[in-house]
Design a binder for these strands. Sequence first.
DNA 1: TTTAAATATTGTCTAGGACAAATATGAGTA
DNA 2: TACTCATATTTGTCCTAGACAATATTTAAA
Lengths: 296, 296
Amino acid sequence: MSNDLFSISDIERESGIRCDTLRVWERRYGFPTPSRNERGERVYPREQLLRLRLIKQLQDRGMQPGKLVSLEYQQLQRLTSRPDNSALASADVEMLLDMLSSGLGYGLSNKLEALLSLYGLRIFLADVVAPMNHAVGKAWFEGKIGILDEHLYAETIRNVLTVALGGLPQGVKNPRVLLTTLPGEQHGIGLLMVACMLRLEGAGVVMAGVQTPLEEIVRGAIECGSGIVGISCSEYMGRRTIASQLVKLRALLPEDVALWAGGSGVRTLAFLKDNVRLFNDLDQIQPAVQAARNVN
Amino acid sequence: MSNDLFSISDIERESGIRCDTLRVWERRYGFPTPSRNERGERVYPREQLLRLRLIKQLQDRGMQPGKLVSLEYQQLQRLTSRPDNSALASADVEMLLDMLSSGLGYGLSNKLEALLSLYGLRIFLADVVAPMNHAVGKAWFEGKIGILDEHLYAETIRNVLTVALGGLPQGVKNPRVLLTTLPGEQHGIGLLMVACMLRLEGAGVVMAGVQTPLEEIVRGAIECGSGIVGISCSEYMGRRTIASQLVKLRALLPEDVALWAGGSGVRTLAFLKDNVRLFNDLDQIQPAVQAARNVN
DNA sequence: TTTAAATATTGTCTAGGACAAATATGAGTA
DNA sequence: TACTCATATTTGTCCTAGACAATATTTAAA
């Protein structure tokens, strides 16, 4: 059933590495090493797709592809496993992850709602959702769960958070924040988490979905009268892309509009700190909002 | 401010036409006609981007690019404007659209909630949301509103429907339906609408988000014990792509799992009717669900 | 009017070269 | 040790122009 041979465009779609780049890697580094079909076109085995996926992930964390292609799959895998410091609510997280992989998420929703009303929104976000996101991403990356499971998880979290957000009282709506992700960034969960935190502080939140072109972000900030533009960056997007887009966006935005960026994608981008206010943690939002309010 | 010059990769991203295709059109048809920068690279003016977007849309509706490139912008525009038969709740729709374009969607949420409780979910979906989707898509296509406005609209609808869906009682959960979109299809609103309709009929709904690879859809259907896989197709995806993916999916799915597809993307795909159950209208869902339940 | 064959159109793939932007390395200085 | 600057390497994207199969359209026959 499962088609184990991939064309170059299949590989582009599945690995996120562009055709041109795949060809030039082959030419320069001797990897990947696709065979050819009767038409002379490249045909990749699944094993190389998996290796390419690993390489892409490591590259996005700042390593050089030229030094990665010579490594075996297992060596690559060893490099990707990061120290896991989510010891906090790890029991809950472990249980929820089990729930997800067995039975495709049935009951997950109820359990999450129970945890939400037990802990309250703020702690739920920091100690349940954030570690869960990390754990789910890792499990997908290591092949323990499929994309479908990740989707089911994301849908469930989205539902829970959307309902929670709707239940929050509308505060003073100051400052006003326009929330979105950069073009190419699909993950909207972080956005919802930030929206919740901001609403808890009484900020006005305008959700603009994912993948908004930079020009449109600028227009939105101006038309909404937002003093702040908030960008959520997952770790799946490549630091280079993120950095260059954030710099461009900063240049396009009026000077009196602040640019905030957070999520695991900005962890290693400290050099942007003069251009962009970076957030490594949900807890940093509260003081930042209050500071912003005092300025106005 | 707005950068009016585009590189070929900008055009690829903004128009959805691949680099290779852009070059080959230029070679064959003499359009587009980019100038070159000091490095000899193609540089496109905004005007050509707009024309390319129109061409892409028309092509996705089944026309040949070779016959479109020679047309002026206005002739293209004339071709795209379809008869608008949404006379039903047109007053409401008109008002909501105004609301969206002025003031970036403030208050839209309240108005939609009011309409929902006035009409009830079923009529709200058919006579408010569906025409609104159409009107918003059209307005974006004609340049009357920006992508950002479309995003704000989608977020608002998503919130309203998510809350409405959460409020529906869990029915008998028969039949069980796995809902998702094909790889490449980003629009998830249709999915939510269908989910609402299915829940109203007492079906069990598993939402699997957007852009699920075909293999994963199959795995999900089997693991969830779904008797039905539901696919939502917007008009933005190209009929060819949709058709070939649906055929592939049908071949991969077990025979006893039904494949349902709906949305404006399947309007002109009647020739698939032997493989796939096609839906042109939300009202067709109710009888189909009841028929499916009787079979089991 | 439907079916089949012939013709035209179209997107994706190929190769290998070029170059600027990004990153790493090494030398010199505080 | 820490920082800055210049040099060297690495890397992704873009270029041209040709080939071919898959799809769509037209023409011919039943």
